[in-house]
Design a protein around this nucleic acid. Structure first.
Lengths: 118, 118
DNA sequence: AACCTATATATCGGCATGCTATACATAGAC
DNA sequence: GTCTATGTATAGCATGCCGATATATAGGTT
């Protein structure tokens, strides 16, 4: 609605994809996922804790990721790793994302709004 | 959640952008917007009426588009055109979309999931 | 005339998702 | 001993999308 809020609205529906792809890279815990996404996006994508943790729980309920508490060393952390089923889902979602984003690009090109593709 | 439903979830947040870009191309009425998006996307993006009309009303409330009933010729139709403010918003949203989609692409590349860019 | 289909717009209720605020706890720095 | 960064969690709220449903018109068929 407001311009400043648009990117948040934009991310709806693709956060699963982002989190799964980060976990496909390497297993890690919630807080580090948050940081990796923030860093990898040059501070453009910031997942608030209130978004991230429920999302992780949802992904775990769907057996796309698996968790394990690590309480012995330092601060207690909950480590997540992607499952085989999660990788399958990620691959399917990535394909759909690309097909969809190409669609949008085509529409924007039509109106002459598309800039250079990286 | 389910793979078949993902693309719908994906579109969340970018439907405004899509509709605005179609209207930036040329003024038209709801039903034809629906068809143009369906055609332009090779049936990949189908906006149900229950999505499209409330969306148009919202955009009009925000003064991004403007409507006018045409009841004299044939079937009554409500024509929509984009406003100056709508074009400004479209341009800003398009930039954010591209910046965001490049972010996602980068994350997917990292995991080796990205295919060729068109 | 009666009927059917494609066109055309509209709204309601339900559902999923994301965010703010809040809470709680630990480790390390000062 | 206090402060800050780290680390996880949830309730409550807002938003947005969609299926179902309703209404109406134009044009074609029988």
């Amino acid at each position: 609605m407001m311009i400043e809020n648009f990117q948040r609205e934009l991310m709806r529906g693709s956060l699963d994809l982002i989190v799964l792809s980060v976990l496909a890279d390497r297993s890690q815990y919630g807080y580090s996922i948050q940081k990796q996404i923030r860093d990898a996006s040059a501070d453009q994508v910031k997942l608030p804790a209130g978004t991230l943790y429920p999302l992780l729980h949802r992904l775990e309920d769907e057996r796309l990721i698996r968790s394990r508490w690590e309480k012995s060393t330092g601060r207690p952390r909950k480590w997540y790793e992607i499952t085989a089923s999660g990788r399958k889902q990620l691959s399917a979602q990535a394909k759909q994302w690309q097909s969809y984003s190409q669609c949008v690009e085509r529409l924007l090109t039509m109106v002459g709004l598309r800039t250079e593709t990286a």
